[in-house]
Design a protein around this nucleic acid. Structure first.
Length: 220
DNA sequence: TTGTGTTTTACGACCTCC
DNA sequence: GGAGGTCGTAAAACACAA
């Protein structure tokens, strides 16, 4: 057991055996006998705990609360994050602390709790964002695949159209009328419209696409 | 041992509510 | 106006690497 633990242990024992002893001594530690909500901040050099005035023996140094005190405070905090004065006084006397210490502990604990909540919120949002990014990548690659398929289909249509045209020309003279007919019915490249998709890419589409499938079938 | 970063305790300033 | 809240920060206490 180190000195700190010995101190804590002694203080806890004293406070449990003599609940009043701390509050009768603490006013010196806290600086004033009354709560004294507002005090001028001391300069860095003089703001140490020597204000306790406890003879400079270190007894009134700022000290960590004992594990048991913290445990009890945590239990109470779990119960309710707010601290009404009755509960504060009860806790203070149970733990042998100054009510002001209990209030400060709750203030700091609420701040830690809030920080943790913000941290958790941030982690959650970050995860959600990462999921959305992954989803977007997947959809982008799907769009790319579909565009490739569309391009291939268009090329196929074009080559079929050219083959059909070649066949008809070689069968002239009666082919001329058919050629005209075919020319009217076949959506050649120039018949495609161009639109711009959401990414700013140009897309080709034929308003007569499905009719085009029909005209193809008559040659099969 | 010492330098350094983190956590804990405590406080002042300011705000809100009754 | 007082009690109790948040916020920002000082400083002690602590942890830990070098």
């Amino acid at each position: 057991m180190n000195n700190q633990n010995v101190d804590d242990h002694n203080l806890l024992l004293i406070s449990q055996l003599y609940p009043d002893v701390y509050t009768s001594l603490v006013p010196q530690q806290a600086g004033e006998a009354k709560p004294a909500r507002r005090r001028k901040r001391k300069s860095k050099s003089s703001a140490g705990r020597e204000e306790g005035g406890g003879g400079g023996n270190g007894w009134f140094r700022k000290r960590k609360l004992s594990d048991e005190q913290v445990r009890m405070l945590e239990i109470s905090f779990e119960d309710d994050h707010k601290l009404e004065s009755e509960r504060k006084d009860r806790l203070a006397s149970e733990l042998g602390l100054d009510p002001r210490q209990v209030a400060v502990w709750f203030q700091n604990r609420r701040a830690r709790w809030k920080n943790k909540r913000v941290e958790d919120e941030y982690t959650k949002l970050k995860n959600a964002y990462e999921n959305v990014v992954v989803d977007k990548c997947r959809l982008d690659s799907e769009v790319l695949q579909l565009k490739e398929q569309l391009y291939e289909a268009e090329r196929e249509i074009q080559s079929l159209a050219q083959r059909v045209e070649g066949t008809l020309i070689s069968n002239s003279p009666i082919s001329s009328s058919v050629t005209v007919e075919a020319n009217q019915a076949t959506p050649f490249f120039g018949d495609y419209d161009i639109c711009v998709d959401g990414d700013g890419d140009n897309l080709l589409y034929s308003p007569d696409y499905f009719d085009g499938l029909e005209w193809m079938s008559q040659f099969m």
